[in-house]
Simulated scan of single mutants.
Amino acid sequence: MTFDHVIKAITPEQAELISLGCVAGVDEVGRGPLVGDVVTAAVILDPTKPILGLNDSKKLSDKKRQALFQEITEKALSISVGRCSPAEIDEFNILHATMLAMQRAVSGLAIKPERVLVDGNRSPDFGIESHAIVKGDGLVAAISAASIIAKVTRDEEMLTLDAQFPQYGFAKHKGYPTKAHFEALEQYGVLAEHRKSFKPVAERLNK
């Protein structure tokens, strides 16, 4: 049995979840960085308009992600982006902030889905049926699409931040804890956009 919005072999139980009714895929980007929002996306694909090449955004080149981002925005039935700010991440911790951002993404959909499929091993309460699928961003097209939307959105925000603060190198490391980022923190200090509860940033503040 195959479906237009299943891109790889999955269990029969997961296939049934995807084949029945209106399904939203949800994924996040940006749990690990030291700076910026954690960004989530919810996507409801149109089964009559399949999109070829969908996959985990981390496994795609930047050029391919950009092309798929455009195709998803043109063909999807509904797309919504949710986020939590660095201040919210510091207040709630990154796990709870990510769950809240996912809830915001789903609540922002123009079409209410019958069920939600989330990449990972846990799902927040959306008020409707939801299921977590481990490595779902490489298994379920709607989750792959959400992964791409979230990734491209956050990467563009890092490019904007890089234009404001080029000395930090955000265009290259996208805010992740690299050696270059640590060196910039040490030399130039902490920005308002940094997550102050994250250890490397907290240590710099304590100095």
Score class of each variant (00 low, 15 high):
5 H>G: 07
7 I>S: 06
9 A>F: 12
10 I>A: 11
11 T>M: 11
13 E>N: 15
19 S>Y: 08
19 S>R: 14
21 G>I: 05
22 C>W: 12
22 C>D: 09
22 C>S: 15
23 V>F: 07
27 D>I: 00
29 V>T: 01
33 P>R: 03
34 L>M: 13
37 D>G: 06
37 D>E: 10
40 T>R: 00
44 I>L: 02
50 P>G: 02
51 I>D: 01
54 L>Y: 07
60 L>C: 13
71 E>M: 08
72 I>W: 00
73 T>A: 07
75 K>L: 07
76 A>V: 04
78 S>T: 06
78 S>Q: 05
79 I>N: 01
80 S>W: 06
81 V>C: 13
83 R>A: 09
84 C>M: 13
85 S>M: 11
87 A>S: 12
90 D>N: 14
91 E>M: 11
94 I>P: 00
94 I>K: 03
95 L>G: 04
96 H>R: 08
101 A>S: 01
101 A>P: 00
104 R>C: 00
105 A>M: 01
107 S>H: 07
108 G>W: 00
108 G>I: 00
110 A>T: 08
110 A>I: 13
111 I>P: 00
113 P>R: 09
119 D>M: 07
122 R>M: 14
125 D>C: 14
126 F>Y: 11
131 H>P: 12
131 H>W: 10
133 I>D: 01
135 K>M: 08
136 G>C: 05
143 I>L: 10
143 I>W: 01
144 S>P: 02
144 S>I: 09
145 A>G: 15
149 I>R: 05
151 K>L: 02
152 V>C: 01
155 D>M: 10
156 E>I: 12
156 E>Q: 12
157 E>L: 15
159 L>H: 09
160 T>S: 14
166 P>N: 10
167 Q>M: 15
170 F>Q: 04
170 F>M: 09
175 G>Y: 05
175 G>Q: 07
176 Y>H: 11
177 P>M: 11
180 A>V: 07
180 A>K: 15
181 H>K: 00
181 H>V: 00
182 F>C: 12
183 E>N: 05
187 Q>P: 07
192 A>D: 13
198 F>Y: 07
200 P>G: 14
203 E>F: 13
205 L>M: 07
206 N>S: 15
